[in-house]
Design a protein around this nucleic acid. Structure first.
Lengths: 275, 275
DNA sequence: TAGCATATGGAACAAATATTCCAAATTCAA
DNA sequence: TTGAATTTGGAATATTTGTTCCATATGCTA
């Protein structure tokens, strides 16, 4: 799309119009303008109080690209766009704390649940940042970056984490294999000399994961454990033990902290292997 | 009162401080400054989005009088005062992009990486709490709790989320089926009248997910989308669209907010179906 | 009312911000 | 690969906005 071409005439007259136009534009935009669109869609409430430079920085584009975006959207420039949002600004969008309080006190239902899970997630992340054992983390990274193939295993609640790790490893071109319990088809013959196992398990620990870790250990492979406590049965078979505590809400445990640990591990290993 | 005299030292640090200072000043102010105080008290919410000129016009005083008012209140000028209100409104804003740039140059091992991913996760959760569309969430819960079997589909980065949903649904005894792209074995014959599809996809959207959603839609099944923007191609085929933005760190995106949304959805649906 | 202190308005200046423009990079098609 | 068309980034410029300063006005006290 050429920058001097205004796809559908006049500028949006309301925030609603604006959102529709944004949706219409969809994915027809070149890269930088797409970044603007995405960032703006996620931060509509900041337009009224930010400068072009700030918005551009947020979208990670130069200011001039953001200006082009404004024009594509049908405005004469950023000031013009901003006027729309300043006029519409009824201090409607409250800040995080207020919003959370509203959600919690609200008539219940899903919004309330969400507030609780968000809060639990934040607390888990905070706890992780405070309690991380950096030595163990460094050791885990070291072990995994020397390995041939990394075998990732996790069942039940740990399976999403395992599959996420497999995905990130793949993106970073680290040789990795996801072991699924599916069909109880044992994939452990794929373990070779020099490989490593990254095992993820939380109480109640799944038998398959424990046995794969123990097996690998017995055959002299390195094992890294991602688990809930140092006294976990998984810890016994491991060369490096990473622990993550999730704050639970009701009977449910989310995965915020575990996922954060997982991506850290994957990125650190990926980086180390390239060096 | 002399204009160069600052009645009680430092500038207010919060909107609450500000109001108290305003009240303290009471009616000890000269006429023009009193006008400012009155107008400001009645229009606190406009400060963030107005220029001095506009505020001054509102208070019916010249801009210079308004500037004096700002200084009497303990600020260095209008910009200083305005910053208080802009920050109160969008806390923690300044500014992730800048920090990222700093980080890239700085050293630091895995511990540092972890801190960044934790921070990104926290910001994502905050963003979710602020931007959640409660109506869409309620609708999604409604649709899914009426469905026969819930078909969960997600590839690549969305796959961990899909598998997590399948796990939680199972724990709550909600009939659900996880569609894996694996082996390209098409499982869509499992879709039956009265079922619903819960599709998860982020840019770049995976073809399989889109086509399954479109297919289900064409056959009259309900579709709920969990995606990154309202303009996502997935949104077009859906009866309810939930959007979640993850703050990225470098080239990497975690899943904190997405997982929080997923567990909320699963628990809300599970609860609704039991009622 | 004279003399002084304070308040006021506006014009001049400074700083921040928006906007344009164009050379260089990139992408796409032949 | 070459050339045409588009996209991109940044430097130059224009505009808006914030801030200071001071001559004048106002109100108070003696």
């Amino acid at each position: 799309m050429r920058a001097d071409e205004n796809p559908s005439g006049a500028a949006p007259q309301s925030v609603e119009d604006f959102r529709m136009r944004l949706a219409d534009l969809g994915d027809t935009l070149p890269k930088r303008l797409q970044q603007c669109a995405t960032y703006v869609a996620a931060n509509l409430d900041r337009i009224a109080v930010s400068t072009v430079a700030e918005m551009a920085a947020g979208a990670d584009v130069p200011p001039s690209a953001f200006m082009r975006f404004c024009q594509i959207m049908g405005f004469s420039g950023y000031s013009d766009l901003q006027r729309l949002f300043r006029e519409a600004y009824a201090p409607g969008f409250p800040d995080y704390a207020t919003r959370l309080a509203n959600l919690k006190s609200g008539a219940g239902g899903a919004g309330r649940l969400l507030a609780e899970f968000v809060e639990a997630g934040r607390m888990s992340l905070e706890g992780l940042a405070k309690s991380v054992d950096e030595a163990a983390l460094a050791q885990a990274v070291d072990v995994l970056s020397r390995a041939g193939v990394i075998h990732v295993v996790g069942m039940r609640r740990a399976f999403p984490v395992a599959s996420y790790l497999a995905y990130v490893f793949e993106k970073m071109t680290v040789p990795a294999m996801l072991h699924e319990g599916a069909g109880k088809l044992d994939q452990r013959h794929a373990l070779r000399e020099g490989d490593a196992v990254l095992a993820i398990s939380f109480a109640p620990y799944s038998e398959e994961t424990l046995s794969l870790a123990a097996d690998a250990r017995a055959r002299g492979l390195a094992v890294v454990a991602l688990t809930d406590t140092l006294s976990s049965p998984l810890a016994r078979a491991a060369d490096a033990v990473l622990t993550v505590q999730e704050v639970d809400f009701g009977a449910f445990r989310s995965l915020s902290a575990t996922i954060a640990m997982a991506i850290t591990l994957a990125v650190a290993v990926g980086t180390a292997r390239k060096a």
